[in-house]
Design a binder for these strands. Structure first.
Lengths: 406, 406
DNA sequence: ATTAAATAAATCACTCTTATTTATTATTGA
DNA sequence: TCAATAATAAATAAGAGTGATTTATTTAAT
């Protein structure tokens, strides 16, 4: 990875030119459209898709039969009871494709293998003192081999890519996490995406970890999501992502939605959100109070944390997020804000409730505040989101990839 | 206009369904692509467009000859001096199409007629104490007749639409501008877009006035613009617009970029940007100091304003905008922020300079601050932007209109 | 002779229109 | 009550139409 911020790298062609569309592009678009609709709205008959897309019934018939032949779609039980020929709902075939997701974290490396629906088939987990490029590369390559071996030969050919979720500016961490500066500095000049791509037979994508988590919510999340929403993932540092027109928005540098730097007025002073609403804050407070913070990291469900300190942190975090939501909503009229993180479900619920409360305290003149809800992807959102990257790239329509000017 | 915020109304079909693409859509897209490229990058030969779009030379040849036949493109002088057949740069034909722009303002109604390049052909201006729907309708209809009559019969057929730039929630103004509440309340239930569309033979579009100004900058502006930028228009109230992926982003309610509500921490208190960086603030300060503020409105170039009060207001405004830019940039990594308004060029320059200064005072950790620049459309940006609406709708590719889910 | 732009003709890919088949429910009349 | 018939809707097949691509040719310059 070079000095630039992490982001899904588009090939040079796409960035410096504006693609015209041709027949194959048209067909590809329509196929992605069908898959996107089925993913979002659930099983539908061919006639339903035709009505929804405005395509002719015949065209949809051809496209969906082809997708079925490709193993991406499967027939459901015919629906009887209405006049006319019974409709056959088509759904995504879970075994239509498989994806690797690699999460590079402060405390561990995680790899998941998911099916076409984002269901985790198998996973690997390795704890470390701090991440290094060498160990990450080794973990990823051996992990791919190990997890691939668990698939049937038929399914192995259906692996469509690997996504990497990596924190923003890893090298700046050193001071915050008490690790030798030069250990982290090596990340600055490594292009882990290219290194992995060179050794693997399928495409490799890379994205900021919080944006990836947002992608998991968008692609695999179970809630009814609006076209535009903002997403917060509370990890060692808080991060986020934004969805516009139903697609993850990354911006030129891939740094869009890196809401950690948002200025938050708190008690007369202005702080950055990252210094208010991160697990690092909770860890520090626990340590300062003489408690151990070690239980935070293995799994959110096994936290053993002083209630008073936790409640204070929840309130502080919620207040910070509420401020961030407010600022964000004045710029873009998000309909929803989703909150998730490496936190127990009870804590997530409490943060959502407190955030709603704090939001109500602000001056909302001229603003229609978004619905605050819990994320549905959970603690694993980052790894799942990594796996969603190759899926999105290959099988879903992307609002933001149509016209890019130099 | 109904209770909903103003915004370019997409037809119901587009909003509730997801269109598939077909051959005519493909051709239309490619034609818009050619026009968009020529508008943005200037005259180019067919071969250049082919290389840039990835379309075959033959396809581009066919498309561009058709556009030339339609009168939208014209040949330039062949470029000799290089090996091979001389290339013939093609440019937009100024008389390719004409557009009406109607600006509904606090102090006046303005109508412009522009050509395909956004050059104003003729204009109308009517001062009022406050806007009413009836007077606006009458002004617009008689204005369309009057300005149409000035075109040649050939050009009359090339009028492609009318755009309306109207302030957000006009009816809330009453208290601020000292006008009877019920006079403004009538706006709440009027759909001026529909009323005009019913009486005109070409399409009518409507948008928030500041967003429209942003559109003028995007479509007609002369500066090199990045893919993503934020725009501020300082009118009686400040407003703005945001451009993502090279297209104006309006959001679901059409209220995106309504940056007036942004919370700004200033002197320990939190205010909304609209109460800090608007001409209404300057007007009030002038009045409070016993000066007349009447010179503000006829034309920015004839302002007669106390220097001390003006300088203070410039600094306050710049500080507010700097805070807003900072908040906005943490959410979306804008590459540029443009500032324009109903202000003299000297004031615009001063505000930009002060905004740069104030931005530098903030904590910029983790942020690459955008370039702050002056807008290039000037005081008339709102009316021009209104005229750019039908142009964009008919002749330019729109990033944000590809896939809309219910 | 070489290079590059521009275009013509033939081909190909994909969607659309029209017509047909299939499977079901609704209606009718003895 | 129940078969026969009508109506409805899904699905698909065949052929037409549109637009981009490929290949080859012309034109005009160095």
């Amino acid at each position: 990875m070079n000095e630039k911020n992490p982001g899904v790298q588009a090939d040079q062609e796409t960035v410096t030119s504006i693609r015209g569309s041709n027949q194959s592009g048209m067909r590809a678009h329509n196929e992605r459209l069908v898959l996107s609709i089925l993913r979002r709205l659930g099983p539908m008959a061919k006639a339903d898709i035709a009505r929804m897309t405005g395509l002719s019934a015949q065209t949809v018939s051809v496209i969906m039969r082809a997708l079925e032949t490709d193993g991406l779609l499967a027939k459901g039980e015919p629906v009887r009871g209405r006049v006319g020929q019974p409709s056959v709902p088509m759904h995504l075939d879970p075994a239509g494709a498989f994806f690797f997701g690699l999460k590079i974290g402060r405390r561990s490396l995680d790899m998941v293998l998911t099916n076409f629906l984002g269901e985790v088939q198998s996973r690997l987990h390795r704890i470390h003192a701090y991440p290094t490029p060498e160990a990450t590369l080794e973990f990823a390559l051996s992990g791919v081999d190990e997890l691939t071996a668990q698939l049937s030969p038929r399914d192995r050919d259906r692996i469509s890519g690997l996504g990497i979720a990596i924190p923003f500016q890893l090298w700046d961490w050193a001071k915050s996490i008490g690790v030798p500066e030069d250990a982290m500095a090596s990340w600055r000049h490594v292009d882990i995406q290219a290194d992995l791509a060179a050794r693997l037979t399928f495409p490799v994508y890379l994205q900021n970890d919080a944006s990836a988590a947002c992608g998991a919510e968008l692609v695999f999340g179970t809630s009814q999501k609006p076209q535009d929403f903002i997403y917060f993932y509370i990890g060692y540092f808080i991060g986020g992502g934004i969805v516009l027109n139903g697609s993850l928005f990354s911006g030129k540098s891939g740094n869009a939605g890196a809401i950690g730097s948002m200025p938050i007025a708190s008690g007369g002073e202005v702080h950055q959100l990252i210094d208010i609403a991160s697990l690092s804050v909770l860890e520090r407070r626990l340590r300062t109070a003489g408690h151990s913070a070690d239980s935070l990291w293995p799994s959110p469900e096994t936290w053993q944390v002083d209630d008073g300190i936790l409640d204070d942190w929840i309130d502080l975090t919620a207040a910070g997020i509420a401020s961030a939501v407010l600022s964000a909503t004045t710029l873009i009229d998000f309909e929803a804000a989703l909150i998730d993180g490496w936190i127990p479900e009870t804590v997530r619920r409490a943060i959502v409730a407190r955030t709603r409360h704090h939001l109500g305290q602000h001056n909302l003149a001229g603003i229609s505040p978004p619905q605050i809800s819990e994320g549905t992807a959970g603690p694993d959102a980052r790894a799942l989101g990594a796996a969603s990257l190759p899926l999105s790239m290959r099988f879903l329509v992307d609002q933001n990839a149509i016209m890019k000017l130099a």
